[in-house]
Design a binder for these strands. Structure first.
Lengths: 207, 207
DNA sequence: TTGATTTGGAAACGATCATTTCCTAATTAG
DNA sequence: CTAATTAGGAAATGATCGTTTCCAAATCAA
């Protein structure tokens, strides 16, 4: 193996001047702005200031405002899914995993993170209705969450932690509404305690 | 009783040229635009076109865009509350009333009305975060709904249709999240059947 | 090296936004 | 009647929006 081969194994470099900023860090800043203000209220000025970049650089990297949003949306989903999976991995039974999931949402529905809100929920009533691709991504995100809920319910039913009597699809949709609704209510000032109590009460759906 | 007295009994007329348009009908048109597009995406052009008025007339009547929104918001709440109360009046027990309420929300969370969305839920993630008065109205609307839910639960507990064991406040908040979440999910395409099934499943919270 | 390519970023661009102005029309008060 | 007041509406206004342009700086290919 010679030097040339080693070079090829490095991640491929594009030709011109290399990018100076960290795209993921920039998207984290952008999604914070989008979450807090919504798609339309978030101006390019606010976005570029938060990202620490000039408008030109942002447009070169992401195409347009919609492109920034869609990239931020995807990153948001990946980050949140990573956090959730870590919580789920700590639980044993299907029921415990559902408890971890609902508690995760309750914990995201108050204080600082609650005020920031959910980017998916927010864009459902903002960009999604007049942008087909955005609408599709929002619908896909919801269906993914709903499928996870149904899978966890069925897991609980097979490991004996959840009654076999309940309708897994219906309860999964109810829990999807409940958890996304938590993110809506969490934008108004709520205490972590009352959200946690609501989460415990919600567990009755899988008893 | 002379003519002058009769005149005084008519509803007081303001001085100048009388308003030609119906304010409530105009607000109904405005709230449809706000619901479908969100506060920021709804332009004055769209609003005035939907309301069938020139911008000047709208500004004379409502002050500014924010004023149009707040008036439409109040009307939206009054109309929805009227529809809900009619449903509740048909139910006997606390549990039946809760069933009617949840079914009412499920029925508003698909098809045409579902796509239109809830003005309160929408503005929670749009106007509310940088407008103190709007934020207060959204919070008030949620608390009113939550209080109604808690009252219905306690009514059910006193008439024997709901177990005395459940924590009324916690379940009320869970149901508030669930019903508002339905309005979020209802913006994506969902069938009335699956929403109705989720509503039935949700009734387990008050069993 | 030289030329091609890409980024960074300030400045400029046209479009659209919310709002105001200005004039006419319609009504009440006296 | 006349004066005062308010609504209706077209046109103008200034601000801000998303986007593009332009040029210097930085890198790769040869």
């Amino acid at each position: 193996m010679n030097a040339t081969t080693l070079d090829h194994q490095e991640k491929t470099r594009s030709r011109g001047r290399p990018r100076e900023f960290d795209a993921e860090a920039a998207l984290d800043a952008a999604l914070r702005v989008f979450s807090e203000r919504g798609y339309h209220a978030a101006s390019i000025s606010e976005l570029t200031e938060a990202m620490g970049l000039a408008a030109g650089s942002v447009y070169k990297a992401f195409g347009d405002k919609r492109g920034i949003f869609l990239a931020a949306f995807d990153r948001y989903r990946a980050v949140r899914r990573g956090l959730l999976d870590a919580r789920l991995a700590c639980a044993e039974t299907g029921r415990d995993k559902l408890h971890a999931l609902i508690t995760f949402f309750a914990g995201s529905s108050h204080g600082e993170i609650g005020r920031q809100g959910c980017l998916v929920v927010g864009s459902a009533g903002d960009l999604a209705l007049f942008d087909e691709e955005a609408a599709e991504r929002v619908a896909t995100a919801f269906i993914t969450d709903e499928t996870l809920l149904a899978d966890l319910i069925r897991l609980g039913q097979s490991d004996g932690s959840i009654s076999a009597d309940i309708d897994a699809s219906a309860v999964a949709l109810a829990l999807l509404c409940l958890t996304k609704g938590m993110r809506v209510i969490g934008k108004t000032e709520r205490s972590g305690e009352e959200m946690a109590a609501a989460a415990e009460a919600a567990m009755k759906l899988v008893t």
